[in-house]
Simulated assay, not measured.
Amino acid sequence: MKKIILGMVLSIFVLSSNAAVTLTDNPFYNDVEVNHPLFVKGAGGSQCKGLPRVCTQMVSCEQAKQALKCGNTKLDRDKDGVPCESICPGG
């Protein structure tokens, strides 16, 4: 009998509440812009995700520059702003 009453109460609660989930229901969501290299926005999400970690794995100078923007400072050993000087001119 208790299970039936509990089931009825839960059914009434579910039917009376707004069951739609929106982005504002997520406590981790906000629309504040974050100015940090790890959160660089681009087409299809973060441009930092999946970038190679070392120069020998880079396929282009542009990829190395993006990885440097994303915070991989090890790519610029002499700290002149040019990453992976073996593939990027100007080093």
Rank of each mutant, 00 (worst) to 15 (best):
N72S: 09
G44Q: 08
K49W: 06
S11K: 07
E85M: 06
K65D: 01
Y29G: 05
C61G: 05
Q63W: 02
Q63M: 04
N30S: 11
M58E: 01
G91W: 00
K79D: 06
L75I: 08
T56C: 09
L23K: 15
V40Y: 04
N72A: 05
K69C: 04
K3F: 12
F13V: 15
G81H: 02
G45D: 04
G90A: 07
K74F: 09
S86W: 01
G7Q: 13
E33Y: 07
Q66M: 10
L38I: 10
L75V: 12
R77F: 11
P37I: 05
V82L: 02
G44V: 01
I87L: 04
I5W: 15
S46N: 13
L6I: 14
K65I: 04
I4P: 03
N30A: 04
C70H: 01
C88E: 00
Q63C: 00
G7W: 09
D80N: 15
L51G: 10
A20S: 12
S86M: 06
A67I: 03
V59W: 10
K2M: 13
A20W: 12
I12V: 15
K69E: 06
F28R: 12
E62N: 07
E85H: 02
N72W: 04
K49M: 11
N30Q: 08
C48P: 02
V14D: 06
C61F: 02
V21A: 11
F28K: 14
T24M: 14
V54K: 09
L10H: 11
G91E: 01
V82H: 00
E62G: 08
G50L: 06
F28H: 13
C70F: 00
R77E: 13
L75D: 01
I4K: 14
K79N: 11
V9P: 01
T22E: 09
T22Q: 14
Y29D: 02
F39Y: 12
A64D: 03
K79Y: 06
T22Y: 12
G71A: 03
P89A: 09
H36K: 06
I5A: 15
K74Y: 10
Q57H: 14
V59R: 13
L10G: 14
V32Q: 15
F28A: 15
P27L: 07
V82Q: 00
C84E: 00
C88Y: 00
Q63K: 03
I5V: 15
V32D: 14
L10T: 15
F39C: 08
C88V: 01
E62V: 02
D78V: 06
C84P: 01
S17N: 12
M58S: 02
V82P: 00
Q66F: 02
K41E: 11
F28G: 12
K65R: 11
H36L: 05
G90I: 09
C88P: 00
P83N: 04
Q47G: 10
T24G: 14
G7Y: 13
K49I: 14
P52Q: 08
P89Q: 07
L6P: 04
V82E: 00
V54M: 10
T22I: 12
T22L: 10
T24E: 15
T24I: 12
G81M: 02
G44Y: 04
G81T: 03
